[in-house]
Simulated scan of single mutants.
Amino acid sequence: MDEEGAPRDGFTFESALRACSGAWSAELGRAVHRDALTAGLAADVSVCDALMEMYAQCGDMEMACQVFDAMPERDAVSWNVLLGGLLGHGGLSAQATEAWRRMLGEGHKPDSVVLSAMLWHHPGDGKQGREVHAWVIRHWLETELSVENALIGMYSRKNELGHALSVFESMPVRDLASWNAILSAHSQDFRVLMMFRRMVDFGARSDETTFMAVLSACDNLGLVEGGMRLFSEMENKYRIQPNVQHRTSLVNMLGKAGMVREAYEFMSKRACLGNEPTVLRALLHASSVHGNIRIGEISAEKLFDLEPENAHDFVTLMKMYENTGRLEDLEKVKKMMRDKGL
């Protein structure tokens, strides 16, 4: 276009900037930015929104904020783009909070995507989470599915099961994300298996995330029988192939209950787990806690081969030897660490 002297307007620059975002190329984006300034489009709201989105996508939030601050006029899209960019960079949550309040103060409304992001990215700030929830209620957005799911997720991370349930029970429509969110909220609650059965009775389809949430809760709560049954159903009834996280959770659960031999047998029957550091580490930890020297040594030996520079594995084995009075073996492990420079 430039070489042929074709006229370029705001839409041209918006399209070019979207292409730069898709290519994750801040360098090309800055070149388009320079051309936009030369073309006298520095104050065009749509072009500035596209510039902010491009810089945010490419990880340069400093430039995105500079573009925003220089805009003589802003619309709701401008604020949503800024907020989305700030929330996408976790370390900028304080600026996002300030931008949120400025946005509302100027009478602009966040879209459902940004609203959900506000809730997902601020799990530790209870006051702000309730502030956003109150805004949702005042503006009649309780029935926005993505927002409701984000509210459940926020209360789940704050361990406020009562509030999460209140949102869940009031939902006129639920999807898989809703069920997974409420199951995660039950991570410390013994009713988690009842909630899962309720999900099944409701006819909702489970996925890997569903089983991860319930198995993690069974691990946390020591619900060994229920967890084992659920794992079996996952494989045989629901035909979902367990991943490493599911299996590690099961090994953890058995190990915490003192069933170290059963955990080892579970791992041994699945050859693929014999070389998974997370599974072996869970088994080594359980062996150390419950004093199962034989299985602890087997796990540690495999870990030393897989992760020769991981000092934590050596330390766990040393603690096991120390706790069981095997001081000579403890000194051997210490020497191994010194020889490796750990």
Rank of each mutant, 00 (worst) to 15 (best):
S112K: 10
S112C: 02
S112D: 14
S112H: 05
S112G: 03
V113I: 13
V113E: 07
V114T: 15
V114Y: 05
V114H: 04
L115S: 06
A117G: 08
L119Q: 05
W120N: 12
W120P: 00
H121S: 15
H121A: 15
H121M: 14
H122E: 12
P123C: 11
P123T: 09
G124T: 10
D125M: 05
G126L: 13
K127A: 15
Q128P: 00
E131V: 01
E131T: 11
V132P: 01
H133N: 06
A134T: 11
W135H: 09
V136E: 04
H139T: 13
W140L: 09
W140V: 09
L141I: 01
E142P: 04
E144T: 13
L145I: 14
S146C: 14
S146E: 14
V147K: 04
N149S: 06
I152D: 01
G153A: 07
G153Y: 01
Y155V: 05
S156M: 01
S156E: 09
S156I: 03
K158G: 07
E160L: 11
L161Q: 10
L165P: 00
S166Y: 02
S170M: 12
S170N: 13
A177H: 01
S178N: 09
S178R: 12
W179H: 08
A181V: 08
A181D: 08
I182T: 04
I182S: 08
L183E: 03
L183T: 06
S184N: 13
A185V: 12
Q188T: 12
Q188W: 08
Q188N: 14
D189C: 07
D189I: 02
F190C: 07
F190D: 13
F190T: 12
F190I: 11
R191M: 11
R191S: 15
M194D: 15
R197N: 12
M199P: 03
M199R: 06
D201K: 12
D201A: 14
D201C: 03
F202C: 13
F202H: 11
G203P: 09
A204F: 00
A204D: 05
S206D: 00
S206P: 15
D207Q: 03
E208A: 12
E208S: 13
T209S: 10
T210V: 06
F211K: 04
F211W: 04
F211T: 04
M212D: 03
A213T: 02
L215W: 01
L215R: 08
A217R: 12
A217E: 06
C218T: 05
C218Q: 09
D219I: 00
G222T: 07
V224I: 09
V224P: 04
E225D: 10
E225W: 03
E225F: 02
G227M: 10
G227Q: 08
M228K: 15
M228V: 06
L230K: 08
L230E: 07
F231T: 06
F231P: 02
F231L: 15
S232N: 14
E233S: 14
N236S: 13
Y238R: 02
Y238F: 10
R239G: 03
I240P: 02
I240G: 00
Q241I: 08
Q241S: 13
N243E: 13
V244L: 04
Q245I: 05
Q245T: 10
H246R: 05
S249E: 07
L250W: 01
V251Y: 02
V251I: 13
V251G: 02
